[in-house]
Design a protein around this nucleic acid. Structure first.
Lengths: 247, 247
DNA sequence: AAGTGGTCTAGACCACCGA
DNA sequence: CGGTGGTCTAGACCACTTA
């Protein structure tokens, strides 16, 4: 058996906790006793108990003992970004190009996508984004903003712009929440022309909803990426009990 | 100073990593050298380095050294899950069907996807998942696990199984991190047959990497979803000042 | 073969808690 | 006060990687 001694010991203790020999709420035998029982040093016992604590099965209390807290481990996973811009994962700097803009009144289909009532007026910004040094655009983006923020257009001329910074600036409201929905699609002709791919080629459709305080919808963006030009990467990490500051 | 020696040491190392003295990708000085430098025993050094590993800042590699992985930026936006199972977002219960299994030796192409060395042996589980009441599968999944956990096969018979629970159980290790990469693809013939769609129809390719402590790769899964059967939704929220546990 | 991190021992002193 | 877990030392052998 090449399994470390402390791991075998941890497995044994997990089994015994699950079996009810050490009920939830009770104390595990003190470390010196476990040393005797298993014939190992205290270091090994502590390493084993640490595993149980990491799993959230027990908690240790100086001067008291090791208390059984659960028979199953619970988990909480977290992904984080330092800014919403990171959501786009543009490791390379990208350049924004304006293709056009227009006022649109949401028909039922668009209203459903934009989560508004039919007839609502939006400013649609038609843009695409280029990676440095590439001739073909990375993504075709249609951004919808409320009419009241139409002045955004005037600031959109600089090449390297992050639209949602402008939305925050003009709405005077912090973007508090963003929802992102990623699906696949056959790229429609209009986007295919912009992207320089064949119509109906596979691509990613990304819808993003930017919400302010009180869940107010500030902006929506519909993005189409050709299959071979982009992937989304998200890292989820287990949240440790007691938080990052440590036990 | 009542702060434990190992914690002071950990803080020092974090500072030095952030300062660039130990860049991401480089190796930390070996433990014996740290013992000399700080005048402490190896146990204390290891306890300090363990803290860094728990934070995901470094990973340790027997025979090689301790590699710096990140400088940990403070997160503004976070998304959270109560379990990794939520990552799949199956609001409906789904049923797992086994299509087959085989041993595969990673050729260079597969090795690149699985992030291992060519020639490494894996157990490939070929499965698909059905939504309740649907005749067509939702997703074609190929799951790769290390040979040492081959006993997983035996437990895979119950219809409604969460494979990574089994991986955790058999590896005796907690899944501490999951990376998910979502892209689009033209569905290849083999998957198209399973899914009941036309070959080269647009679809989502989702690669998931499940890592244990110390960034050990425990399992990889390659999933193909037809475009019209699934979307990924993620909500990002602005992290409030102070955070959950405070750092 | 040399050097790395992984495991383990035998011991010590401490801070903390409850009787 | 005695017993608990928390910290720390000095030393040992092992498994693993690289050269």
């Amino acid at each position: 058996m090449t399994t470390p001694r402390y791991q075998q010991l941890a497995d044994t203790l997990v089994r015994e906790i699950r079996s009810g020999r050490f009920p939830v709420g009770s104390l595990l035998p003190p470390e010196p006793r476990l040393c005797q029982r298993f014939g190992v040093s205290r270091h090994t016992v502590r390493e084993a108990v640490r595993r149980l604590a990491d799993l959230g099965l027990v908690s240790r209390h100086q001067g008291v003992g090791t208390r059984v807290r659960a028979t199953q481990s619970s988990a909480h996973y977290v992904a984080s970004l330092s800014s919403l811009q990171d959501l786009m994962q543009y490791t390379q700097r990208t350049r924004l190009e304006r293709l056009g803009e227009r006022w649109v009144e949401a028909d039922p289909a668009l209203a459903s996508v934009l989560r508004c009532n039919p007839g609502q007026l939006w400013l649609e910004l038609d843009t695409c984004r280029y990676q440095a040094g590439r001739r073909e655009p990375l993504v075709h983006m249609r951004v919808y903003v409320h009419p009241e923020h139409e002045r955004i257009r005037e600031e959109l001329d600089a090449g390297n712009v992050w639209i949602y910074g402008l939305v925050e600036k003009h709405s005077g409201e912090r973007i508090v929440e963003a929802q992102q929905i990623v699906g696949a699609l056959a790229i429609p002709a209009a986007s295919a022309r912009v992207l320089g791919v064949k119509a109906r080629a596979p691509g990613l459709l990304v819808r993003r909803y930017y919400l302010g305080r009180n869940a107010r919808l500030l902006s929506v963006s519909l993005n189409v990426y050709p299959a071979d030009r982009f992937e989304f990467s998200t890292r989820w990490r287990l949240e440790l009990d007691g938080g990052p500051a440590g036990r």
